[in-house]
């Protein structure tokens, strides 16, 4: 087996655009769940409207890329209002169900035949990002050290992705260290106390949901740009769950947690993927037991196991010292 290749695969994934996409989505989720305690299980929906908002305006209406990006952001903001205005008055677990349902509705609508004239249906659309890659300053060559390398295009999207991550992290850091951040952290602890102290908690929750949703919309755009393709079925509920896994891996309620989480997540995912594939192709694992097509599902099963173990042993995530708590939890404990 070629362990150097495994390592190169893992590192490439950990610094690549995919990891940046998950880091962005998880930074947004951190603001929502980690700081404000909002259980948003529809991060995939925000990514979808971001990605499609940009793509559709560019391909269907010939808009320039920057306008597409604005449309994507607007879509993310509108979705946050649509979801938040009615559901943020409800119990936390209702928000979870409403967000997951909304994300699923969006995916089903976008893949439907009826919407195909706008959304391109099940198969989506490809090769729409030439505007973006025309800006690539790295050219077509390959960059890297030894076995680890990225093409110029990959390097370009990875760079943009990570710069956006840096911006999102900086914004989060500024916000959570301000009095605004104190209010949303307090809301996660006990919303009623915060209301009793004269804060409009509903408005704060809506702000946190919208900000996190905007970051996820940006993540959706980076994802679409990186793969030069967008299909509705990229944005399944599982995508939202991975965002949670990334956040938990890195540490809930810590500014850099999502970044650490995304890098670790992809490092582990790509390494296990590469290892398993090599083990199968080289015959270490008989292909009667597993075939290479089983590698994808096994990776995801590992994500599932990781989620269970985290929640069982360290609910705040790998790097956290405390457990996340919401007002709903506190109430449930009181009732228990």
């Amino acid at each position: 087996m070629d362990l150097i290749a495994v390592l190169a695969d893992a590192v490439r994934a950990a610094v690549g655009p995919q990891a940046a996409v998950f880091a962005l989505a998880a930074v947004g989720l951190n603001l929502q769940f980690g700081y404000a305690g909002l259980m948003n299980f529809g991060q995939a929906g925000f990514m979808l409207v971001g990605g499609y908002g940009m793509t559709v305006s560019v391909t269907r209406y010939g808009a320039p890329l920057w306008l597409g990006v604005l449309v994507g952001l607007l879509m993310g903001f509108l979705l946050a209002l649509l979801l938040g205005v009615p559901t943020l008055r409800l119990r936390g677990d209702y928000l979870a169900i409403a967000t997951i349902a909304a994300a699923e509705i969006l995916r089903l609508l976008f893949r439907s035949e009826a919407a195909a004239p706008l959304t391109y249906g099940v198969f989506g659309v490809q090769q729409f990002a030439s505007d973006f890659y025309d800006l690539n300053p790295f050219g077509g060559g390959s960059y890297g050290i030894g076995r680890f390398s990225l093409s110029g295009g990959q390097l370009w999207i990875a760079l943009v992705g990570w710069l956006l991550v840096a911006a999102a992290v900086a914004l989060t850091a500024l916000l959570v260290s301000s009095p605004w951040g104190r209010v949303i952290r307090a809301i996660r602890n006990d919303e009623e106390v915060v209301r009793a102290l004269g804060k409009n908690t509903y408005a704060y929750k809506l702000q946190a949901l919208a900000l996190g949703g905007l970051m996820a919309s940006v993540a959706g755009m980076v994802l679409a740009l990186a793969s030069q393709a967008i299909t509705p079925d990229t944005y399944t509920a599982d995508l939202s769950f991975y965002a949670f896994a990334v956040l938990l891996l890195g540490g809930v309620g810590r500014v850099l947690g999502p970044v650490v989480g995304a890098v670790l997540f992809w490092l582990l995912l790509a390494a296990s993927d590469s290892l398993l594939r090599q083990a199968i192709t080289s015959g270490v694992i008989s292909d009667e037991v597993l075939s290479t097509s089983d590698v994808g599902p096994i990776r995801l099963a590992l994500v599932g196991i990781a989620l269970i173990l985290f929640m069982y042993f360290r609910a705040g995530g790998l790097l956290s010292r405390r457990t996340p708590k919401t007002a709903a939890t506190a109430k449930a404990e009181v009732a228990a």
Binding site: M39, D93, A96, M311, A315, T323, T326, A332
Partner: peptide, 10 residues
């Protein structure tokens, strides 16, 4: 006394 949220995620 795991929180409801962590059980939900589990």
């Amino acid at each position: 006394r795991a929180s409801q949220v962590s059980m939900f995620i589990a």
